[in-house]
Amino acid sequence: MCAEHDSLPTPSSSRRSFLFKLGLGLNVVAATLVGIPVIGYILGPLRRRTAQAWIKLGPLQSFPEGQTRLATYENPFRVAWDGATADIPCWVRRIEGERFQVFAINCAHLGCPVRWFAQSRLFMCPCHGGVYYEDGSRASGPPPRALFEYEYQVRDGHLWVRGGQIPTLSEPA
């Protein structure tokens, strides 16, 4: 009976080819509908939201004039499971009065944490030997530019910075 069925001419072979095309089409539609949210989900973090916010760094008294000190802020976009990685360090240089420079901790070369040496008034990087002067400008070594600087403002006796993203050559703080 099957053989007989198979040998029948046009009407049923067009039905078979319709079924085949229907199956193909349904699966293409299904794959697309699955694929769109998957790709959207994976690329989610790429969506350009503001990755920066104003953060209170501390009262002005904690930054003596003429000194450079390490300060820490909490990542404004933290999630509950960030743990210690939500605490971001930065170097605060109070030049005088309300004139500041707030440097990112990351070396402009490859992002390692730079250290401040108050005696020689230099920042040194432990990775590839980049050195910066106290105003953040490049002194020597491989860095292609000065230290990254955060925008800052003084409000209600506190120092605020605009942070929340890792500063890089393509997106300086």
Partner: peptide, 23 residues
């Protein structure tokens, strides 16, 4: 991040956000 144009998008894709953290 040194990749021209796409640098910051690639950073976000790698880190799952703008900064090294839980994600």
């Amino acid at each position: 991040a040194r990749v021209p144009y796409a640098g910051s998008a690639l950073v976000h894709a790698l880190l799952g956000g703008p900064i090294i953290a839980g994600r």
